[in-house]
Write a protein that binds this DNA or RNA. Structure first.
Lengths: 215, 215
DNA sequence: ACGTAACCTTACTCGCCAGTAAGGCTGGGG
DNA sequence: CCCCAGCCTTACTGGCGAGTAAGGTTACGT
């Protein structure tokens, strides 16, 4: 788009352009249906360049995956700093997440909606990135437990809560698509509202009991 | 496996066998990487039979999708009957869901972990099945609102709660894989515990407020 | 000025797999 | 007993797309 039609771009720049294009195409078509030719074209380049710089289709996908996973994790970590109280850390983390998804929808699609791909390497990398996020949230929850006065709970519980939170946030990602007006702040607020009290219940070992006898 | 090697199986039976095989293979490989040949082999048959009965690879996938979506929805509906109180309905529904996933893991993988497939028809069908589940849950939540004494809440809230619940349950599906011993009953209990109070908060319009000033 | 490394292209090969043509079995109804 | 409807097979075609061979072109350092 610049005035000078920049041919002959240096490698590091071109690599990022290729990854940018890859994310767009992978998000739209999925790993298998995406063709390297189409990605090359989006990057304003021909196919052999992709192979020269990124080795293979799988290598390209992995590079894209890693870059975006890194981005998301960085944003989350930067937001949920230990300076805040547990509640505010969680709130900030959720807000950062919803904001990221809003602003980088394609990245999110590639990051999350691509399971059951053939290559073990890809499956592994996908799992790794999700685990990293889960670990971060689990850490948050555990910190909250440590700060609270209740008895030490088994790790299982922190993990359980983390899975619930991440899954809920993930699904609300779809809800956002249905309500384009809704700002991330409102979604975060509602989710906090819904989840905060119950979290304390689980972590304090309080048990929900069936209000009348079971059938 | 039976004593008589049953060649020449009647069509309706064979169709179900093909769909059974398809679910196993699609779950393992994903839509694109799965080959019709492999599915045919799993069904103890040759490829043209698949095309004769199910038309195309896409038709086969759609048939599998529809059958399993139907199953899951039926199980959920049967459990969450209106006879119970809202809480017990939700509990029963969640329990049915977790039980289904435990017993039909492949079906669940095909049903949920297959987005961003090329064909619009498949994307549409996948979305339809998820929407059906969400609609069911939203209905439950709405029924709960109606039963409660609070002011009429906008529909948005019921939908929001439903997305949260479905997403949480979905993600806990992964948690189950990590904790094979855990029975569906315990998972359901914990999730109810975590979510029930907060649900009331959201539906009653109570607002979580930041405990100290925001950064 | 000019060589060379880095950038980039056209024009292939080759294997895989969806889909099909052409016809062989077999068993139940007349 | 015999025939035909419905079950099933082997053996193809055709195209798509990952990966590559072979070489052309620019710009930067000296």
């Amino acid at each position: 788009m610049s005035d000078i039609r920049r041919r002959r771009v240096p490698r590091p720049v071109r690599e990022q352009q290729i990854i940018d294009a890859a994310i767009r195409v992978f998000a739209r078509r999925g790993y298998h249906a995406a063709s390297v030719d189409e990605i090359a074209e989006h990057a304003g380049i021909s196919k052999p360049m992709v192979y020269l710089y990124l080795d293979s289709k799988e290598g390209l996908f992995l590079a894209a995956l890693r870059r975006e996973a890194e981005r998301l994790l960085a944003v989350f970590r930067a937001a949920a700093v230990p300076a805040h109280s547990p509640e505010l850390r969680l709130r900030a983390g959720l807000l950062a997440f919803f904001t990221f998804v809003t602003e980088h929808r394609d990245s999110w699609v590639v990051l999350h909606r691509q399971s059951s791909e053939p290559s073990p390497a890809i499956t592994a990398e996908l799992a790794r990135s999700r685990r990293a996020l889960l670990a971060e949230v689990t850490g948050l929850v555990r910190a909250d437990i440590a700060a609270s006065d209740g008895p030490a709970r088994p790790d299982d519980d922190a993990e359980f809560v983390a899975y619930t939170l991440v899954g809920a946030a993930d699904s609300l990602t779809d809800w956002m698509a249905l309500h384009p007006g809704e700002p991330p702040e409102r979604i975060t607020l509602r989710l906090m509202n819904m989840v905060w009290v119950g979290m304390r219940n689980v972590l304090d070992g309080e048990v929900w009991t069936t209000p009348s006898q079971l059938p």
